[in-house]
Structures are given as C-alpha cells and as structure tokens.
Amino acid sequence: MTSRATLIQIEGVSKWFGDFQVLRNVNLQVAERERIVICGPSGSGKSTLIRCINRLEEHQEGRIVFAGRELGPDATDLAQVRREIGMVFQEFNLFPHLTVLENCMLGPTRVLGMTAAEARDRALEFLNRVRIPEQAGKHPGQLSGGQQQRAAIARSLCMQPRVMLFDEPTSALDPVMIKEVLDVMNDLAESGMTMIVVTHEMGFARTVADRVAFMDEGSIVECLPPKQFFSNPSDERTKLFLSQILSH
C-alpha cells in the first residue's frame, strides 16, 4: 500500500458550521486504487468529510491535497479538480429533465469537449457496465431507485474520474436494489478504481475495503484493514457501534 502514490491527503482538517464543530482535526491518506469505507453514527460528519474532498463544503483548518493540488479558497481550477472526482449521492440527484443517456453525456460534451457521438459511445459503454443499457432513452423518473443510482454511477464514470466518492449510495434503496448497486460497486472496485464509500453495508466493507474508518463526533476514531477493524477494534466507541450495527 505504501508503494502506491498518494492521491488524496487530508491533514488536520477541521470545519465548523457556525459554533458547531463538524470535523475535528481529521487525518486521512488515500493511495491510488485504494478503497476506503467510512462508517459511523448519524451526524458524525461522514458526509461533510467527503463533501470537503470535492469542495461542496469548505474546510476552515488543515489541508486537503488532491493529486498534488491543494484545495483552498484560492483554488482556481476547482472545476478541473471536480471533473476528476466522481460523486454519488444518497438521493441519486440525476437531472430529471434529461434522459439517462443525456445525463451521462452532459459532462463529457460540456466539460470535456467531446463530440456528441463520442460522448454517446462512452455513455453507452458505461451504462452497459452498470447493466442498464436498455434504460438509456428513459427519463430518471421512469426508473427504479436501483436503476437511478446505477445511472448516477454511470454519469460519474463517464467523466473518467480518478476517484469515486459515494455518500450512502444504498441508503435510499430496498434490499433487492441494494444488491444491484453493490454489485456494480464491486465491479468498479475490481477494475481498480480509487473509492471512498460512506456506507453501513458492512458486508461490502469486509469484502471490498482496504481500510475501514470509523468516525464519531467529527473525528476519525480509527482506520484499520477490515479484518482487524471487525475482529479487534481498539476503541470502545467502535466496539459499541459495531455491536449495534451487526446485531440486526
């Protein structure tokens, strides 16, 4: 792991919403092709942390460096950074006025400057990868939740990002759909994509993650390979959390 280049470096990051401190001195390094799962109780700052990575939220202290570029208030190439970071939201956030295909083509044509034909080929390729090529012509409202989430993943992949961030991608879905989405995420992990996944799917964490981070009250309490994380966590809070989440 140490032999791979660092893609994302988070050093001493803190953030406040007003008086409320959401992130407390967070440190995390993510290497290329590494897969990190972040879990923790509601309100512990998981979403905020990954949203800081593509700067949907701004941090106030510390440094976040992505591929050698520091994200700060004077980052001029924000759009450039964002196009290299894919983001998948809990609520899919597809563009409802566009078809699935158009959703996937928007970034490549407008941001990467591809021709419509090229973008279309790429979009169809990724829709194939997420196993919904037959939904290409439909609008998001006509798809099931699982299909929408996979379309959203395809939309991100069409930008050929260097890392994919997932914020509870399966929390809005029922069990059958959860499996569809997790299968796609498994494939993605196998293809070597760098991934940071906020999820409570512990099965996924166990089989796919290189490391599992546990967050509580704005800090990363521990970050361990899944074997150790599940069998031998050191912190009491992690043990408590695991006993709660694994009991049902």
Partner: peptide, 28 residues
C-alpha cells in the same frame, strides 16, 4: 440545491450549470 451539487460534481461551470440544469427545469 442537490441539482446544483450534482452539476458541480461533474465539473460544470456556474454558467453551464445554470444553462443546462437549472434553467430548463425552472422554465418547465
């Protein structure tokens, strides 16, 4: 606002976001 976030996440500029995502939906 989640539409804005989704648009920004794929690297759209403010203007593109406005032109391709917000406006078409708002007009409808």
């Amino acid at each position: 606002g989640t539409q804005t976030e989704a648009g920004l996440s794929i690297g759209l500029s403010r203007w593109q976001l406005w032109r391709r995502v917000i406006l078409p939906q708002a007009i409808r």
